[in-house]
Simulated scan of single mutants.
Amino acid sequence: MNLISSNITLTFTVYGPPGPLSYMLATLLFLIYLFSICANMFLALVIYLESSLHKPMYVFLFNLAVNGVIGSSSVCPKIMVHLFSGVQESSYYGCLIQVFFVNFYGISAYVILAVMAYDRYVSICKPLLYHAIMTPAKVKQLLLVTYSFPIFSLSAQVYLTSRLPLCRHTITKLFCDNLAIVNLSCVKSNLDNIFGIFIVLSLAVLPLICVVISYIQILKVSWKTSRDAQQKALSTCTPHLAVFINFSLATLFSVIYNRASMYISSEVNIFMSLHFILIPPVLHPVIYGIRTKEIRRCIM
């Protein structure tokens, strides 16, 4: 990114002037954000301190909790500053950093959920081979792929976006995203669009396919087992499936928000934009804390 671009200031136009309503929204956002941080860090701490939870499924859950902290922290503090102070601007460099971490949160969460689905598939469909397949080395390899591929691909995307010349400097959203910056450009970048489609297909669609295939196999195997085995499989899969459906809905809202934010009311706009960042990190530790027997036992 050149020096001229780094000095550009972007203005958010969806915020109103400071007042009682903005202060109330900022306070509510702060409380939700605080609960999200505490819940995810508490869950991560329980998994870290309790040796009986040092298993592949809980290692992945630990990473999902940390990812939730990254996601909510990449957006919420900045929005609260805008609401409290009335300063509704961001540097171009800061906006690109926010784009990277918001996308990293979303993509990494999807990949982690896909890896967790694979872990459940091996546990239920190949129980005798589980410890031979899900070795500590295998878990580390899966986590390496989970983080390295999004980091490199998103770094490339942000770099391509940073090379685009800007003709406008106003964003009609609550926070920065890649499409919003691309729409400010004076030129249309086919390379940026193609690379964005590649990221979506490889880091969102493929994990979705992996989860669907894993659960199809789990259903096939569970259908042939006893009722007790079916209930055990259901109890271990229900939290993951609930989290996956919740995050998929949040992602769908985010896609609609990115593509149609200019054509929907401001109230719906705010809900869709915050749902993706706030709701999954709040619900995920609650769902796993309530539905997972081992975690409940360790918490008690």
Results as ranks from 00 to 15, higher is better:
Q88Y: 04
I47H: 11
H131M: 04
R296C: 09
T27S: 10
H284Q: 03
I107W: 07
Y159T: 05
C210R: 11
F42I: 10
V212A: 13
T11W: 06
R296G: 09
I270V: 14
L128H: 12
S155Q: 11
L144K: 06
P150D: 05
N40K: 03
I264N: 09
C237G: 00
S72W: 03
R296M: 04
H82R: 10
R291G: 05
F30P: 01
D228W: 04
L166H: 12
F247W: 12
I37Q: 11
C237V: 02
P77E: 14
P280H: 07
I70L: 13
Y263D: 06
A26Q: 12
V122F: 01
T292E: 09
R227P: 00
I295T: 12
T236C: 06
S189L: 02
T170H: 09
I171G: 05
D192P: 00
I151E: 03
F30E: 01
S6T: 10
I97H: 08
L43K: 12
I8G: 06
P280K: 01
S153E: 01
T11N: 10
T238S: 09
Y257P: 04
L144G: 06
I151K: 04
I32R: 13
N40M: 02
S261N: 13
F35P: 01
D228K: 07
A137F: 10
Y147Q: 03
L128I: 08
L283E: 01
T172V: 08
E294H: 08
N190I: 01
T13F: 01
D228H: 01
L184Q: 14
E267C: 12
I213V: 14
F198W: 13
I290M: 13
F152S: 07
V122R: 02
K188V: 06
I181W: 01
S74W: 08
T238M: 09
L25H: 03
Y58F: 15
V75Q: 05
K173Y: 14
G16H: 13
V59N: 03
I218K: 03
N190H: 01
K138C: 04
L234H: 12
A65P: 00
T251M: 15
G68V: 10
C38I: 15
I8S: 02
K224I: 05
N7Q: 14
N7W: 11
T236R: 12
V66H: 08
F198H: 07
L208A: 15
C237E: 00
T11G: 02
F253Y: 02
P77G: 13
V268S: 02
F104H: 15
Y121H: 11
I199E: 07
F12T: 10
S148G: 00
M300H: 06
L201K: 02
S52T: 09
Q217R: 15
L234T: 12
I79N: 11
T238W: 05
V115S: 05
V145Y: 13
S108D: 03
V187G: 05
A137G: 07
I218A: 05
L208E: 11
I32Q: 14
T27F: 14
Q141K: 15
L34T: 11
F84K: 02
D228M: 09
L10R: 07
T251P: 01
S248C: 13
F149Y: 08
